[in-house]
C-alpha cells in the first residue's frame, strides 16, 4: 500500500514498517539536490515533526515525519549521492523507514489517484 501527503511525501506501508520519501513533484520543485541530512536510527518523531533536511543548490527544505514512530533505517546512499532524490525519487531515493506507532494516522492520507488529482490541481 502506498500513501501520499499534501507535503509531497510518499509512504510505502508494509505491516507497521513505513518507508518514506519525497514525490517526483517535490524533487522537481526542489531542483538539483546536493545534500541530504538524515535522522539517527532509533530516534522517535511525532507526526509532522522535522525529521530530515534536503538541500538543493538554492535552498534547504525540511522533510517531515509523516507519522509518529521510531526510525528503523535510513538511506545512507543519499549521503554519497544526494542526486538519487532527483533521479529515483519514488524508489532508490527513499529517506528513512519508520515503525509506525499509530497506523490510523495514515487513514486520511491520499492514495495514488488522489495524490495525482491533488498535484493536477496545483498546476
Amino acid at each position: 500500500m502506498i500513501k501520499f501527503t499534501e507535503e509531497h511525501e510518499w509512504l510505502l506501508v508494509d505491516g507497521d514498517t513505513v518507508t518514506v520519501g519525497i514525490t517526483d513533484y517535490a524533487q522537481k520543485a526542489l531542483g538539483d539536490v546536493v545534500f541530504v541530512e538524515l535522522p539517527e536510527v532509533g530516534a522517535s518523531f511525532g507526526k509532522d515533526e522535522d525529521a530530515a533536511v534536503v538541500e538543493s543548490v538554492k535552498a534547504a527544505s525540511d522533510v517531515f515525519a509523516p507519522i509518529s514512530g521510531e526510525i528503523m533505517d535510513v538511506n545512507g546512499a543519499l549521503e554519497d549521492d544526494p542526486s538519487l532524490v532527483n533521479s529515483a525519487a519514488m524508489d532508490a531515493g527513499w529517506f528513512f523507514k519508520m515503525k509506525a506507532s499509530d497506523m490510523s494516522e495514515m487513514d486520511a492520507m491520499m492514495d495514488e489517484t488522489g495524490y495525482n488529482d491533488f498535484v493536477a490541481g496545483l498546476e
Binding site: D32, V57, K58
Partner: peptide
Amino acid sequence: PVQFPMGIMGEH
C-alpha cells in the same frame, strides 16, 4: 527568471 527547465546546476 530564477531558473529555466535545464535547472540551476545544468545552467551553471
